[in-house]
Each structure stands twice: as structure tokens, then as C-alpha cells.
């Protein structure tokens, strides 16, 4: 117990928080999701509309989102229709690029791989990183099950639920507590990503494969059709982008040096007052 006094009161202990499995899979995912997003938007641009149902309505309307370029008296404009509401999105969706070289496409070239229209390449990139993503998921699940990372840090337990209101207040007022495990809000976020968003985006992706549909026709039933699955795939992508943005903001607010150190080396400076355990460093 004499060690505990060795840590200055203003500083918590340095704890080994993230195993190598967690850190390596984290960075592989970061790379995969980057390429999956940009190649996915390339694929979306081949038919920049989303529908609900088994098929795409050409002679009836079951679209929930569509991007297009339209001719107006003031020249071509980009239009985006979401759930029946139409917005002028010139410069971003439907029409982008410079005035002398406009691009008439869903997402701008700056957000796609390749930057020009090339569905074939988009698919090659998407499926390559899709495989890496899924195989990494498999490795993460096995490792995190056996080293108890899932149970300790990801599964939301009753005490996390009761601690949630206080944690929301703490986050809203930027008073962060850095403990040995994640805070309730972090657990909810990571649980949602690992056990809801990741499985959903994989399953809806597979539902778009006519080959997989013949093997698992129930995929078409649980998602209510291939086109609905495509729409859900897009919505989950948007939620993952939202997660990414919040994730980055939280890292920056919480202390980028400490957070990045734990993501790279595993060592994390806990808040003052965190009890010292065996293996911790001052």
C-alpha cells in the first residue's frame, strides 16, 4: 500500500488498459472502414437511389432517398429527395465539382474511391476490405471473448444502466472520469457498434448478394427485401460515420495524447484517485 502514496495526488496510475488484440484490430478496422466508406459511396453512385421493398420502383414509387441532377431555368442543379422532401443540394449531392467542370453524380468525387466513376473498381475495393473487416471481426470476437474484454468492457451491465444518467451529465459538462474500464455511455456506444451496427451492416451487405440469398433466403425476410436491406446498409453506414465523428471529438476533448497512447501502446493514465492494482505504473 506504500506504492499508492508514490502516485502524486494530482495524477492517477498508468494502467495497461488495451491488449494487443484490441489495439491491432482497432487500427485494422479504422483502415477498413475508411476504404469501405469511400468505395461504398462509389457503388452507391452507380444508382443513387434507395428504396423500401423487394425491388426498385421505376413505374411506382417506393424510393426513400434519391439524388439527381435536374435542369432548371438557372442551369443544372443538384436535387436530393428524402422521404418525399426535396432539397437543393447543388455542390454536394446530385451535382458537384467546379462550375466549368460539373460532375452529375450522387456523392462528389472527393468522397469516393476512385475519385472518378468506376463501379468495377469500387466493388473490388469494397469486397477486399469487406473480407478484411469480417475476418478481423472474427479474430476480435475470439480474442475478446477469451481475454474477457467483451464481458469487462463491452457488455452493458445493470450498474452501467443505473450509472447512465450521471455519466450523461458528466459528458455534457465535459467532466470525464478515466477508469480501468469504460464509462456507461462508452459501453453503450461500443456495444451498439459491435453487436448491432457491425452485424447489421454485414448481414444487409450479404442480403444484396443473389448467391447468398439462395443459401439464406430468410435474409430477405428479416430485412423485408433486398432493396430494404440496401437502404439499411446505407443507414448503418451513416450511423457508423456519426459514431466516428463523435469518437474523434471525444478523443480530442478527453486528452488526445493519453487516448492515442492507450490505442497504440495500451497504457492509459487513469483519473486521480483510481486505486492502484498490480501491474500499474506510477
Amino acid at each position: 500500500m506504500s506504492e499508492q502514496t508514490a502516485v502524486p495526488a494530482s495524477k492517477g496510475p498508468l494502467i495497461y488498459r488495451q491488449s494487443a488484440w484490441t489495439r491491432v484490430t482497432h487500427w485494422i478496422w479504422a483502415i477498413c472502414l475508411f476504404f469501405l466508406l469511400l468505395s461504398g459511396l462509389q457503388i452507391f453512385n452507380a444508382h443513387p437511389s434507395l428504396y423500401v421493398g423487394q425491388q426498385s420502383g421505376f413505374e411506382f414509387d417506393n424510393a426513400v432517398l434519391s439524388m439527381s441532377a435536374v435542369n432548371t431555368d438557372a442551369g443544372p442543379r443538384g436535387r436530393t429527395t428524402v422521404l418525399g422532401y426535396t432539397f437543393d443540394t447543388t455542390g454536394v449531392f446530385g451535382m458537384s465539382g467546379s462550375a466549368d467542370r460539373p460532375q452529375f453524380q450522387g456523392f462528389p468525387g472527393a468522397a469516393t474511391i476512385p475519385s472518378y466513376r468506376d463501379l468495377g473498381t469500387g466493388r473490388v475495393v469494397h469486397f477486399f476490405f469487406g473480407w478484411v473487416f469480417v475476418l478481423t471481426m472474427f479474430v476480435w470476437f475470439l480474442a475478446s471473448f477469451f481475454n474477457r474484454h467483451i464481458w469487462r468492457d463491452i457488455i452493458v451491465k445493470p450498474k452501467d444502466v443505473t450509472g447512465l444518467p450521471k455519466d450523461i451529465v458528466d459528458h455534457a459538462t465535459l467532466r470525464f472520469h478515466h477508469g480501468r474500464s469504460y464509462t456507461p455511455l462508452q459501453k453503450v456506444a461500443y456495444f451498439g457498434v459491435f453487436f448491432i451496427l457491425f452485424p447489421l451492416i454485414i448481414a444487409t451487405g450479404l442480403t444484396m448478394s443473389p448467391g447468398m440469398d439462395s443459401m439464406f433466403p430468410w435474409l430477405l425476410d428479416i430485412f423485408q427485401g433486398r432493396q430494404t436491406a440496401r437502404t439499411i446498409h446505407f443507414v448503418v453506414m451513416s450511423l457508423l460515420v456519426l459514431f466516428f465523428v463523435v469518437h474523434i471529438i471525444m478523443v480530442i476533448i478527453a486528452n488526445p495524447f493519453n487516448e492515442l497512447r492507450s490505442m497504440i501502446t495500451g497504457w492509459y493514465r487513469a483519473s486521480p484517485g483510481t486505486p492502484l492494482n498490480e501491474g500499474d505504473k506510477p
Binding site: F34, F35, L37, L38, G109, A110, A111, T112, I113, P114, S115, Y116, D118, T121, V124, V125, F244, V245, I248
Partner: peptide, 16 residues
């Protein structure tokens, strides 16, 4: 976040 997106501009066009 946006700089990561914009990084996709044309640096990866070689995959085509």
C-alpha cells in the same frame, strides 16, 4: 473527420 474523407480525393485512384 472531414480531412479523412477528403484524403480520398484522388490519392487512391491507382487502384483503378
Amino acid at each position: 473527420a472531414s480531412s479523412l474523407i477528403l484524403a480520398g480525393c484522388d490519392q487512391f485512384d491507382f487502384v483503378g
